[in-house]
Design a binder for these strands. Structure first.
Length: 279
DNA sequence: AAAGTAACCTGCCCGC
DNA sequence: TGCGGGCAGGTTACTT
């Protein structure tokens, strides 16, 4: 589910709601989600701690605690973080049986980690210990230091297809299937083109497509497809879906030239493209 | 070195 | 109505 814009939206929600809140109680219903710590240790190290800051790196959410440990979430395909005030109504479409982690704050509010498919992962980084998953991440696509020169450097000498290069988190952190499809369509580049075959002009188009698309998707609160799987902290859908031009458009037509879109599979992921506009 | 496949999970949709 | 197959916004490990 969540790619950079969705994760950023959740991160911004968390900044509004949980900064300076103390985790009074904790309930772990699915210990398997905890990756570098046992449920007992997790309880011990997180209970009573205050959230001092929230950050995003790629598709990861980091909650910095006053103990100098860091709580890290990766939402996988279907993970949700939901915030609830005391007796607030539960969001009907979200099934309570997939609530796997409960963080109860001192003020009576709570944060729930819900995940239908259970591909999400949670870590507790102790002090200044390093988490390999974070260390290996590539450029932050909306970062100021991610210049066109850096983008070109990352792509231009690679032999793999451009879609896989975009989705490889070691190159750029945060692009998933939706935004890879969309940005390649914007740039008019066929997803199977090799990285080292792209001209400077093509790379430039793609670079700006990435910056613009991700930026716009964040402004609109991310993408919630018809199945409504993605929700923000308060259970509301994002508004980028109407802006989507090719992803998920089975039997759809190119908004540029009107010809039928094709679907191919790359690394076992559905890839939507216009065979005419993307070359 | 790169590309393909399977695995981890549950749920939904479609065709028969 | 039910069943089976395929698919879903991610990542990793293993095989060709």
């Amino acid at each position: 589910m969540p790619e950079l814009p969705e994760v950023e939206t959740i991160k911004r929600g968390l900044e509004k709601e949980i900064i300076n809140k103390v985790i009074a109680a904790l309930q772990v219903n699915l210990p398997r989600l905890l990756k570098n710590i046992t449920a007992n240790q997790f309880q011990e190290l997180v209970t009573g701690k205050m959230i001092k800051a929230v950050q995003r790196r790629g598709k990861y959410i980091l909650c910095l605690l006053d103990s100098s440990d860091t709580l890290v979430f990766h939402l996988g395909m279907s993970g949700l973080l939901l915030y609830q005030k005391k007796e607030e109504t539960v969001i009907p479409k979200i099934k309570q049986k997939h609530n796997h982690l409960f963080f109860a704050f001192e003020d009576g509010t709570k944060m729930i980690y819900n995940d239908v498919r259970q591909f999400g992962k949670i870590w507790l980084i102790r002090g200044d210990e390093k988490l390999p998953e974070l260390e290996s991440l590539g450029w932050e696509p909306l970062g100021e230091d991610f210049t066109f020169a850096k983008f070109k450097e990352v792509i231009q000498n690679k032999k793999g297809n451009i879609k896989s290069l975009l989705m490889n988190q070691k190159n750029i952190a945060g692009i998933g299937n939706i935004y890879a499809n969309e940005t390649l369509f914007y740039a008019g580049i066929h997803p199977l083109r090799k990285g080292d075959s792209l001209s400077t002009q093509e790379l430039k188009k793609l670079y700006f497509a990435i910056k613009d698309t991700l930026h716009k998707a964040i402004i609109l609160g991310g993408t919630t497809m018809a199945d409504e799987s993605y929700r923000n902290l308060w259970g509301n859908p994002g508004n980028f879906a109407p802006e989507i031009l090719v992803y998920g458009k089975k039997n759809g037509y190119c908004p540029n030239c009107g010809c039928p879109l094709s679907i191919i599979r790359i690394e076992n992921r559905s890839t939507f493209l216009c065979p005419d506009c993307q070359r």
